[in-house]
């Protein structure tokens, strides 16, 4: 699994008992590991505790798991002011379509940059590199104005529409992701394309049937990263989606606790747990790809 031998393990220690050797080379790592795991997990334990405690105030959840109830989860679905199923649905729609669009457009652009030599290629790449440094969030006033402007022309693309939000997110599709993907595309040998072309495949066939399959790991990473970033985006979602039924989870969960007089921490915690589980699973499932995707982009193939 690893290629690095630790110096401790290799040094011959003859006189020491074996147990002490194990402690010096491996055992202490378990202690560090245990501390690290506690550090990583304890806030997550706390949120489960808040979700399972009765009563909205944090005071009720003071001692861990002293009284356990599933009432908060029930209220998420029954409370007339909570449109939780819709919020989850909206978030999934926005996240999924943003992820698919980002992957397709990013992959297509990376394919063009990696496989074709055309006029303006260098310029376009540098342009992308510069543009991706500027966060879209800073333009939120202009985005708001643009959407109110578009509304009479394309009613489905104006304010308070999930489609509009997806389009705004897709505006950032070619930023960071293209570079992550571009590096990965370059690791796929050109000779594969050449062979396919000699067999008579067109550039479209090479892209859809050969290249996309070979770069699947990076596609998974980009899809996940894009899903998570649209999942967590607050400002633009809050700005675009004006009625509470259309909110995404980032907007609705924040709103649940933003009232300083009456923060609904119990509902927040229950909602957060339900909505985080799919993301966590996706993450753990794609974990291997993420490591290779992130580092291959960095090491540059």
């Amino acid at each position: 699994m690893t290629t690095v031998d630790t110096p401790m393990a290799a040094r011959p220690v003859i006189n020491k008992p074996r147990r002490s050797l194990w402690w010096r080379s491996v055992g202490w790592r378990h202690i560090v590991g245990l501390i690290a795991v506690v550090y990583a997990l304890f806030p997550l334990v706390i949120i489960v505790n808040i979700a399972l405690s009765p009563g909205a105030s944090l005071a009720a959840s003071k001692s861990l798991f002293s009284s356990v109830t599933l009432g908060n989860f029930g209220r998420l679905f029954s409370d007339p002011n909570s449109h939780f199923p819709r919020w989850v649905g909206n978030t999934m729609i926005v996240g999924t379509f943003t992820a698919i669009g980002t992957v397709l457009m990013g992959a297509a652009a990376s394919y063009a940059f990696s496989r074709f030599r055309f006029r303006g290629r260098r310029g376009t790449l540098s342009f992308l590199l510069v543009v991706q440094m500027f966060p879209q969030l800073l333009s939120f006033v202009a985005i708001f104005l643009l959407l109110t402007w578009i509304k009479p022309v394309f009613p489905g693309l104006g304010m308070d529409s999930l489609t509009a939000l997806i389009c705004v997110y897709l505006g950032g599709a070619l930023g960071v992701n293209t570079f992550l993907m571009y590096g990965f595309f370059n690791t796929v040998p050109q000779s594969i394309d050449e062979a396919a072309r000699i067999d008579g495949a067109t550039h479209t066939q090479i892209f859809w049937t050969i290249i996309l399959r070979l770069v699947a790991p990076i596609l998974a990473v980009v899809a996940l990263l894009s899903f998570i970033s649209s999942f967590s985006e607050y400002v633009i979602a809050k700005l675009v989606l004006t009625t509470d039924r259309n909110w995404t989870l980032a907007v609705s969960l924040y709103t649940l606790v933003s009232d300083p007089k009456e923060p609904h921490w119990d509902l927040f915690a229950a909602g957060a747990i339900i909505s985080a589980v799919p993301v966590l699973l996706l993450f753990l499932f794609l974990q291997r790809y993420i490591v290779s995707g992130l580092t291959s982009g960095a090491v540059k193939g």
């Binding site: 457009m105 297509a108 652009a109 992308l128 879209q136 389009c167 950032g172 293209t178």
Partner: peptide, 11 residues
């Protein structure tokens, strides 16, 4: 496609 979105919603 990517460029069209980028030019409108970013640039």
């Amino acid at each position: 496609p990517g460029m069209a979105f980028l030019l409108i919603f970013q640039v």
